[in-house]
């Protein structure tokens, strides 16, 4: 499954973003926002909401937000700790979550919240944050929209693989237990004891 870096949520246009550049490779060091290249994108605006010019003014603050780095968006320094990130995220959620939106500004708040969410998801994950920092350091300043590559979980190398596999072994153990209902060898052992035995067996193998 592939995510296109150019796929964007554009705040200004309705329905389609007409690309102004044709640089589909997101790693090219371009200063300034990359417009989505050759990709269909959908904006938040539903057609009925953009029937007049009012939408353009309403979008202005959101456009400004789009140029901010994730750190600027969360209002923290680039050396900010995980705790600061979490705190900033919750504070901004209280400010921009659509549930606290004044009537009539729901879409704007929704957009903002999704941005804050993306910044939080990127910076709260050590791997994704490192990738993001790396690009920032090389002067690659993506528009908010072009950062898709950071935020798809499946694409991120799972650094906690050891931790994950431990969970998975527990899950598969549970599955195994429910399969083998018969009174087999492990009957008199506790689950933990069997887990330990299994772990010893697997470490012997390696």
């Amino acid at each position: 499954m592939r995510f296109y870096p150019g796929l964007t949520i554009t705040p200004t246009d309705h329905r389609f973003c007409v690309p102004t550049a044709t640089n589909p490779v997101s790693l090219r060091p371009i200063i300034g926002p990359i417009k989505c290249p050759n990709r269909v994108t959908f904006s938040f605006k539903k057609p009925r909401a953009t029937l007049n010019g009012a939408a353009a003014t309403e979008d202005k603050p959101a456009t400004a937000v789009a140029d901010l780095s994730f750190y600027e968006l969360l209002g923290i320094s680039e050396s900010g700790s995980l705790m600061e990130i979490k705190q900033a995220y919750k504070q901004l959620a209280r400010k921009y979550h659509p549930d606290v939106s004044p009537p009539g500004r729901l879409e704007e708040y929704t957009k903002r919240f999704i941005r804050v969410q993306e910044a939080y998801e990127t910076l709260s994950d050590p791997t994704r944050r490192a990738m993001y920092d790396n690009d920032m350091a090389r002067g690659v300043h993506f528009a908010f929209n072009a950062r898709r590559s950071y935020h798809h979980r499946d694409q991120v190398v799972e650094h906690k693989s050891e931790w994950k596999s431990r969970w998975q072994s527990q899950l598969s153990e549970l599955k195994r237990r429910s399969r083998s209902k018969s009174k087999d060898e492990g009957k008199n052992m506790s689950w933990a004891a069997r887990m330990r035995q299994q772990r010893n067996e697997s470490s012997d193998e390696s």
């Binding site: 389609f16 959908f42 659509p98 549930d99 708040y109």
Partner: peptide, 20 residues
């Protein structure tokens, strides 16, 4: 969206084209 309404959008783009 904020009201938990699900919308599915689908569009077609041909390579080299900028318009759906």
């Amino acid at each position: 969206d904020a009201a938990n309404v699900l919308r599915v959008l689908a569009g077609v783009v041909m390579p080299g084209s900028r318009q759906p």
